[in-house]
Structure formats: structure tokens, C-alpha cells
Design a binder for these strands. Structure first.
Lengths: 206, 206
DNA sequence: GACGAGACTGTATGAAAATATAGTCATCGT
DNA sequence: ACGATGACTATATTTTCATACAGTCTCGTC
């Protein structure tokens, strides 16, 4: 996919906006008016370039025959992250299990990604093995007492309830067979990967 | 909103499909070809009727200026049903708590509606009070052993695990404080309102 | 049996839209 | 200094489209 010049990007953005707004791709004449061109050919040649670079496709001979070639990335839904290896960033490609068609705004605050839960340590909070958590990335922000967080302790990712007493943090499981994880903020490396804002269970063992 | 004739409904359905398929509303000529009309005016007059009845709107003077007026019903997402009173149909307006932007196809089999859970009788299956279940309507179909169902026993709606032994059905809770509900198919009135295909927990007490 | 609504045919017409051709002007890399 | 590229102006030429007008044929109903 070729790079766009600023002008081309501007025009593509406008086309996107127009199509989102009123559902119909623009004509050359409409583009001409919008950008104060004095010739429909200015629009035509821009469309040609955008088509050549793969951002749109044009159906010849048809009115408003402009079709957006969607970047696969900004599709829709949220990325689902599976097992995360120690030391690797959360959203690294290797751990993605795909995307689920979930509206980020379904949760409040909105979710940034989905994480598949392993293990039963949060069973008594109604979170079972295989469940999918909706997670809000809360970069460098202190969680509320009792909030459920996705934390990374010395590289290891875990989902637990948050409790803090000064420099001492406790990551509390919700299952009698598991023990709280003590974290000393002065010694241990603690990263908050996000707070849990929702839960999704689909298929399988309902 | 006026009723449509079968022919009009057929044409509206085709327009919907066309627009979903290739993103562009059809022209009169395209409709003419699709329905083997011999005159573009056949298409034109159908569009006029659909517009008059409020199913579409037409932008005059613009190519492909057809816009679908979305029935609020089939908007998107799924209806969320709250407390259901005895004897009333599941999807009656009175019990709707609104709609959630959830893709029905997120679940498999696909969900038909969402139901908010009351009580803790399914706690040990990871279903808590206030949780939202995705339910697939399974009209007149026998559930699988052990499947979680939304059942209506003598008018009362409940979510339980299904177990059948001949004419005797047991609706099993998943909580030691609750007792199985015995249902005698010869005496009791049992309606399966659907099977549980997913779970959603959003906001609040995570 | 007249009447209107629904579902068309058949023919036109002008505006809307795609698209070609021939240039201008500035910028950038070689 | 030169050619390629980007961003246009200006004018034309077809198609493509929306849309009007004048009918036909078949129902159901009043």
C-alpha cells in the first residue's frame, strides 16, 4: 500500500466522512464543490491516484462508483488476546486470537481490548476458565480499591482484585484454593495493563 | 408506517440486499434489469410508493439517491429483556430495558435476545445477579441434557440447567442453597423460551 | 359494472455524472 | 537543466440517471 501525500490523505478522509455521514459516495462534481476545484478533472485524477494506491476502487461507468478498501486494522470490534508470554507487550501480534465484533462502547468505561482468562483463580467473582474479559487500558493510573485489574508482576500477566496499603499491594484471587499475591512496589516490577470493565462468555461450557 | 404489499416488500428486500452487498444503492435501470422490468418507470413508481410509506427516502436529482429509513426495530444489536411477569410474552414491550449494541453473530448459535438475570441460583456456573444472558430462541425444540435454558414453568420464567427423564424434567440450579425444580410434563405447563448461548457482564460489580 | 389501486409497458428528455484531452505551474530528485 | 510527479484549470463528450407523461391489464370492492 503506497503512502499518500497530505493532500491525497485529506481528500480520502473527506470521502470517508461523506460516506459515513450520508451513506452515498460523492460524485466528481460534489468533490469539486467541496474542495473549491474549478474542474471536475481535479477530483477525477485524485480518485485515480487513490485507486492506483489501493485505498479505493472505482467502478467505471457507474455514478458514485467509489468503494473504500478498508484497512483491515480499523475494521470494527476489539482484538482478543490469548495467552501472554512474560515480558512481551500485551497487544503483540503473536498473542492475538483474532477480533470479536464487540462494540467498545458497550462497556463503560469503554474497552480497549479483550483478554481470555486462564485458570479458576477468580471463580467466586463469576469469572471462569476460558471467559473473555473486556479490558480498559489505564496507563499509569492507580486503580481503585477492590477494582479488578489486569496486572503484570515481574513479567507475568494475571487478573486479580486490587488492594493497596502504602507501598504494599495485594493482588487478591477470588477462590479459596489460591493465595493473594504480595507485591512490594519498591522491589517488584508492577505494571497495570488495564482494568476489567466487562465480561463475555461465548460458546462452549455454559 | 403503512403496510407493504408482497411485491413491494420483495423489492425493498432486494434493495436492502443490494446495498448491503456492494454498498451502493441501485439505480432505476439496475432495478429494471434485476426484476426484468421493461420500463424504468416500474422501478421509479415502486420507489415512490416505498418513499411515501416511509421505508426509504429519495434525494431528488441525485444518482442513486436512495436512503433506507431504518426501522428502529432492526436497528442493530439485541433487545435486552428485564424482569418478565408471569404469563406475558418474553419480548413484550413492557419488559424491555432497551437494546445493547451486541452482534447477534458473536454467539454461536446466534443470539435472539438478551435477558437480565435475577438472583444467584446459577452462581456456581459463573452467572451472577445482574448478569446478562444471550439467549437463542429454540421454538418447540428439545434442549440437550445439561444445557442451560430459559424456561417458563406455569408462567414463571427461570434460568436453569436442563435434565430430562422421560416425562419428568428437572430444572437444576447451580447453587447449594437452591433446590431443583421438578416439572411433570403431563401436569405442568413448560415452555422453553430459549437456550443460553452466551453471557455478558457490563459495568457495576466486576 | 364502475372505480381505484397496484403493477406494470413504452417513450422521452434534461440534468447529473463519468471521463477524455490539452494544458499550466510548482516541487523534487538527479 | 531536465524530466517526473503532484495538483490542478478549462473545455468537451458521452453515458448514466432521474423523472415526466401516456397508456395497459388485473384485481378486489363498493
Amino acid at each position: 500500500m503506497d503512502e499518500l501525500t497530505p493532500r491525497q490523505a485529506e481528500i480520502l478522509a473527506w470521502i470517508r466522512a461523506r460516506m459515513a455521514e450520508d451513506g452515498l459516495p460523492p460524485t466528481r462534481a460534489e468533490m469539486m464543490r467541496a474542495f473549491a476545484f474549478h474542474s471536475p478533472n481535479a477530483a477525477e485524477s485524485h480518485l485515480r491516484v487513490l485507486a492506483r494506491k489501493g485505498y479505493i476502487s472505482l467502478r467505471s461507468g457507474t455514478a458514485r462508483g467509489i468503494h473504500l478498501c478498508n484497512r483491515e486494522e480499523e475494521d470494527s470490534g476489539l482484538p482478543l488476546v490469548g495467552r501472554v508470554a512474560a515480558g512481551q507487550p500485551m497487544l503483540a501480534e503473536e498473542f492475538r486470537e483474532g477480533r470479536l465484533p464487540v462494540d467498545p462502547g458497550l462497556f463503560s468505561p469503554r474497552a480497549d481490548y479483550l483478554l481470555r482468562v486462564r485458570g479458576m483463580s477468580m471463580r467466586d467473582a463469576g469469572i471462569l476458565d476460558g471467559d473473555i474479559l473486556a479490558v480498559r487500558r489505564e496507563a499509569a493510573c492507580v486503580p481503585q480499591e477492590g477494582q479488578m485489574v489486569v496486572a503484570r508482576v515481574n513479567g507475568e500477566v494475571t487478573v486479580k482484585r486490587w488492594r493497596r496499603e502504602g507501598d504494599q499491594v495485594w493482588l487478591l484471587p477470588e477462590h479459596p484454593d489460591f493465595s493473594p499475591i504480595p507485591v512490594d512496589l519498591r522491589r517488584d516490577n508492577l505494571i497495570i495493563e488495564g482494568v476489567v470493565v466487562g465480561l463475555l462468555r461465548v460458546g462452549g461450557k455454559l
